[in-house]
Design a protein around this nucleic acid. Structure first.
Lengths: 145, 145
DNA sequence: TAAAACCTGACTCATTTGGTAGGCTATTGC
DNA sequence: GCAATAGCCTACCAAATGAGTCAGGTTTTA
């Protein structure tokens, strides 16, 4: 699957939004970039992708910015990563062909393995929500919205 | 980590060696390429990397070729993949800094997550050996050449 | 001694990654 | 209604990676 910087940056940005959650008052890209020390124009693209995936909502104009579209406990790390880095998988060979034979020896067994590993990744990343990360990040303090 | 074609090809080649194990009679690259339908010159590089990692041994000259360096039950999928695709990790940001604080909010928590996921991958891929794959491969279908 | 096999390194060609630049459009405060 | 703010969109770019190919060694051994 390979989490690229996009996946990491997206997580950092959303985590920042969750940490400073303030009702439905949007946070500007500039503020997020400042708090996370990420390059602003790049972050803009990433937030756009997150918006496309329905993870975040935006408001334009003065006083605009981004807000989480759902509560942090309803946003999984898997959703974040796959929104910006594409589907979570171990590699991108096709699916194991079930119907009968493989083209070549052992191929099917390996495809099944890669597929299984991808599933494992997906499951694990789905088991963590943004809320969990907020807890981890702030240690003991709970900053719910 | 992203298993590239190299990881898949390396596995296919070694699986082929394991399936046609014949004492210590080496198999030539050409034969392996033929059986697995992989591009021969590319496969040559991959086998070289596997040799460098000590997974395979080679014999030169007429009648030369490659042999597994150990029994299939002592070769894990993690060893194969990391030999040709580099260390198994979820992404390549640094290690989580333990000693006190992160540079920016939440960063540490995320680094810890990526690291944990990488560990999960490594563990799972280490739990399968070539011998397991041989079983899987010959269990599901006829291994014709 | 020459064929079979391994080894080395450079080269290509396409795609992805990690950005930057710049203009457009919607919203709001005055 | 005008300008400032702030998101939106398109393009571009350089470097790295991925997936191979190719040419030319060197070593071994029948």
């Amino acid at each position: 699957m390979k989490v690229s910087t996009r996946g990491d940056y997206a997580s950092r940005a959303l985590l920042s939004l969750a940490l400073h959650a303030n009702g439905s008052v949007p946070t500007s890209v500039r503020d997020i970039a400042e708090r996370t020390a990420l390059p602003q124009p790049y972050l803009e693209q990433i937030l756009l992708a997150l918006k496309g995936a329905g993870i975040v909502r935006s408001k334009r104009g003065v006083g605009g910015g981004y807000v989480l579209a759902r509560s942090p406990s309803e946003i999984t790390m898997a959703q974040i990563v796959s929104a910006v880095d594409g589907p979570i998988a171990a590699g991108d060979f096709g699916e194991p062909h079930q119907d009968g034979a493989c083209d070549h020896e052992g191929q099917c067994a390996l495809l099944a393995l890669w597929s299984e590993v991808g599933e494992l990744l997906r499951t694990r990343l789905s088991s963590y929500t943004l809320a969990d990360m907020v807890l981890r990040a702030s240690g003991s303090q709970i900053s719910a919205q």
